[in-house]
Amino acid sequence: MPSSRLVTVLGTVVRREREARQLTQRELARLAGVSQAMVARVESGDRSPSVELLEQLLDAMGAQLTVAVEPLDADLDARIGALAGQPLADRIDQAGIDAVVARLGDLPHVLAGGSAALLQGAPVPVTEVEIAIRWADSARFTQWLTDGYAQRWNAQWREFGYLRLEPEEPGEHLWRTVAGDVRARMCDELPEAIEVRHGERSYRVVPLVAVEITDPRAADLLRRHRQRQAGGERSS
């Protein structure tokens, strides 16, 4: 694994552990006896942390560092495999899609990216609900975010908060709301959509073929899933 990749992975681990404990970067820095800027640089991957610093940060959160060797992206393949073995209803529930869709109400939107792929049966990991929103509905969307006590993803500090909510403001279109994390694709017109139904709810989604064309990350996940399927068929 290249060092730059390892640095990114380690930063992600520290951020994930911190957020799981509902700590801010400032609080973790105080517990670990380091500066907030140090925590921010580690989480963003801007600094290659020493083993001592990693142990210091993790120890402050009641965790410890372990080392293992595995094939590249083995964890991602394992997640895809685990999802493939689950009922679709369980995957939808775990992704938190229904909670977001219910709160969106009559705000015009189309589910996109990995969320759209999941709703069409693909066992892809979904870390945030992805939606397409028209710029014409930006004010309504901003009010929806406000009503949902949203915090915007701050790429500089690698955490949610400290930025204005409006999509027009600079920053990544990713928010944490009471319904879950939401990533928006702001567009002049909503993309062409199809309707899929699961249980008692209908969803307007970007067709799978369009997802693969427009979303490189979702396309890569789908490719990995198909490779796993092909490998399983060859071994059977």
Rank of each mutant, 00 (worst) to 15 (best):
L174F: 08
T142D: 10
Q22I: 02
V7E: 07
G62P: 00
L174C: 06
L76V: 15
T127A: 15
S202P: 01
I80F: 07
A150T: 01
G161F: 12
S236M: 11
L118V: 08
R26M: 08
A139Q: 14
Q25D: 04
L221T: 00
E172H: 07
V51D: 08
E189D: 15
T146F: 01
Y203K: 01
L23R: 07
N154E: 09
S115P: 04
L221I: 03
E168T: 13
D106A: 12
E55V: 00
E159V: 04
T24S: 15
A122H: 05
A139V: 10
R103L: 05
P125S: 09
Q227E: 15
A117K: 00
P207I: 06
W135A: 04
E70C: 04
L111V: 06
W157V: 07
A40E: 08
L53Y: 08
V9R: 13
R152Q: 06
P123T: 07
D98G: 03
V209K: 12
P207F: 07
Q156R: 14
V39H: 01
R79M: 08
R91W: 06
R47Y: 11
A74F: 12
D75R: 14
E17M: 12
L28C: 05
R15A: 15
L58E: 02
V110H: 01
D46P: 00
R176T: 01
G85N: 10
V69P: 00
D46M: 08
G113L: 05
D46L: 10
L76K: 09
I194P: 02
M1H: 11
E70Q: 14
R223E: 15
Q25F: 00
E233D: 14
P49I: 03
D137V: 07
L221G: 00
S35Q: 05
N154M: 03
A218R: 00
E55F: 00
D73K: 09
T177E: 03
D137W: 04
A155R: 12
R30E: 15
S50L: 04
S50G: 13
G114C: 12
R183Q: 14
E212V: 09
P108M: 05
G180A: 10
P108K: 05
E55M: 09
L58V: 02
P207W: 09
R185D: 13
L107P: 06
L10H: 03
R228H: 07
L83V: 09
L190N: 04
S115R: 03
D106N: 13
Y149T: 03
P207L: 05
A210R: 13
R134A: 12
P207H: 09
N154K: 07
V178F: 06
E52N: 02
S44V: 03
Q227I: 06
R234M: 11
S48H: 11
D106E: 14
E52V: 10
L119F: 10
M1S: 13
S138M: 11
V129I: 14
A40K: 00
A136W: 05
R158H: 12
V101K: 02
L83N: 08
L107Y: 08
M186W: 07
L190E: 05
Q229V: 14
T8H: 12
G231A: 10
D73I: 07
A218E: 09
M61T: 04
D147E: 14
D59P: 01
L53Q: 10
Q94F: 05
L72I: 12
S3K: 12
T24N: 04
P71I: 10
L118R: 02
G113W: 02
A78Y: 09
G114D: 13
V205P: 00
L83D: 07
